[in-house]
């Protein structure tokens, strides 16, 4: 049975008695040559811990990110929207499953991952701590947050850890449909009635800052960046990814006749960089620490689902034991 995979930490097959320093040299040379590191390969502990933290955060973001959108499945206003939104949220849950498997290859089982999400020790993307207030929010989330996620994940796909890189291939492919679904909702509202256009502008006004913050704090505040870049755990800095997002999406947002709620936002001709108002990073930290508008609710919903499912998982485990009859 694969449901509750009790994970044994993968056995390192190239543990050949060389010193840690020598192994590190080989490891870094392989990464530099563009090779993928696999679960049974030796890896520096900091690499392993950083990947666990990152992929676990990504998996958690998928499962928690499913929550604001699932609230709107019952209200999706046409067959096409209802089907696309259900499929999208289903994909997010599937991504969480896939990513938790990747974390398991690094030595942390699903039960622990879920426990750490529920007790607040593990984090997820901050952007999901804001409430989706109207149907237009569903469009903005699926279009712009998924776009932001795709830009980041397309880069991470080129990272050095094999299982994560392969999971991201599938995830990026599926996310591209989400983005189309979101863009389609936004175009429909932008070209609809005055009421619909206002609804969309209002959604953008509320989501813009969380989206700019999605890429994380500016580089000057980020620790360990050099090492992570050398190990290809990180591929570009937060600021560089944020700039790429502005480049690709600001013109598309303007194309829909929407205005972006940042009077400073413009591309500087000389440097080729976007100038913008920094989000309030203190506020950002406060929300990450659990004090955003929806942190408590998101975790409460997950905890409730977990507790209500407890008897089911116990029953599954009992049924599995029952079936494990030795072959005569």
């Amino acid at each position: 049975m694969t449901l509750m995979n009790p994970l044994v930490r993968p056995v390192i097959t190239d543990d050949d008695g060389r010193s840690e320093d020598e192994k590190l040299v080989t490891f870094e040379a392989r990464v530099a040559a563009g090779e993928k590191i696999e679960p049974t390969d030796w890896m520096p502990d900091r690499y392993r811990q950083q990947l666990i933290r990152m992929v676990q955060n990504h998996g958690n973001s998928e499962i928690v990110g499913a929550l604001p959108e699932r609230e709107w499945i019952p209200h999706a206003p046409t067959f096409k929207r209802k089907l696309a939104l259900t499929a999208k949220v289903q994909d997010e849950v599937g991504h969480a499953q896939l990513l938790y498997r990747v974390v398991e290859t690094l030595g942390k089982p699903r039960e622990v991952i879920i426990e750490e999400l529920l007790n607040g020790t593990a984090k997820y993307s901050n952007v999901f701590n804001y409430p989706p207030e109207t149907w237009a929010d569903v469009g903005i989330i699926a279009w712009l947050i998924d776009a932001a996620a795709i830009i980041r994940q397309m880069l991470l796909r080129e990272g050095s850890y094999g299982p994560y890189s392969r999971a991201l291939k599938r995830i990026c492919y599926e996310e591209s449909f989400h983005l189309k679904h979101g863009h389609d909702i936004c175009v429909t509202l932008a070209t609809g009635t005055q009421f619909q256009r206002d609804m969309l502008q209002d959604a953008l006004n509320r989501w813009w800052n969380p989206i700019v913050g999605f890429f994380g704090p500016p580089d000057r505040a980020s620790v360990h960046t050099d090492e992570l870049m050398r190990w290809r755990v990180k591929l570009k800095t937060n600021d560089a990814i944020r700039q790429q997002f502005f480049d690709q999406y600001v013109p598309r947002i303007w194309e829909l006749g929407l205005s972006i709620p940042d009077p400073e936002l413009r591309k500087d001709d000389e440097s080729g960089r976007w100038l913008y108002t920094e989000p309030d990073w203190e506020e950002f930290k406060r929300v990450i620490k659990g004090h955003g508008p929806c942190n408590a609710e998101r975790i409460a919903v997950r905890r409730l689902a977990h507790e209500e499912g407890e008897w089911v998982r116990r029953a599954l485990a009992a049924a599995a034991n029952d079936q494990a009859v030795p072959v005569q």
């Binding site: 209500e308 499912g309 089911v312």
Partner: peptide
């Protein structure tokens, strides 16, 4: 059934009910 999307007892069932 779509109301189970995101809150099933195990991820795999969440996905099955959505399907």
């Amino acid at each position: 059934n779509a109301e189970w999307t995101g809150v099933g007892p195990v991820l795999e069932e969440d996905i099955a009910f959505s399907s």
